[in-house]
Amino acid sequence: MQDTINFLFVGVGGQGILTASDIAAGVGLEGGYQAKKSEVHGFSQRGGVVESHVRWGEDVGSPTAEKGTVDFLIALEVMESARWIDWLRAGGAVLINRQRIAPMTVTAGDAVYPSEEEILEVVKGRTEDVSWVDGLAIAKEVGDTRMTNTVILGALSTRLEVEPEVWLRVIERRVPPRYAEMNRRAFEEGRRAVG
């Protein structure tokens, strides 16, 4: 159970976290690991925080990682990287999609969206390994903002041993055929973005 790779995907309802983490789990399984994933969905469609755990390993028990043992924290929204940072193990990797979604508390003026510096300070308290990806911007260039998560998965894939082809195979299985090509491009662009 030592060699488990723990991922935590975080973001906001509607960002497609569940699909992204589904794909990551599928890649683990297809890449020869045992894989589990776990999320809690309830109020999420109405703008709440969404978290999804994915674990790869030889023998994965709990579908959720222990706080402080996450190897990869993938924040699809900027501020969420700071909210969940305690879950990361010291020195783990953080991947942040440069997209800010202001919660109602901020838009209503009751709270302030922290600055990038403030967020980074919190994140850096845990790790120096922080990568920013302009997922939304890249997805727009590729042709559809819905490709954001595929860009991020592309970036993530560069940090793992599983072959890119396996990722692409799993992604293609999850998306409608007419979007297969666009997803492939988004994935490649994501790999380049951190390469």
Binding site: G47, T69, A82, A111, P114, E118, E121
Partner: peptide, 20 residues
């Protein structure tokens, strides 16, 4: 517990309460 000393920063991260 594998927890490191919590990050020193005292950042208040805004909540995301559900809304209609």
């Amino acid at each position: 517990t594998p927890r490191e000393p919590a990050s020193v920063a005292t950042l208040r991260i805004p909540q995301r309460p559900p809304a209609l």
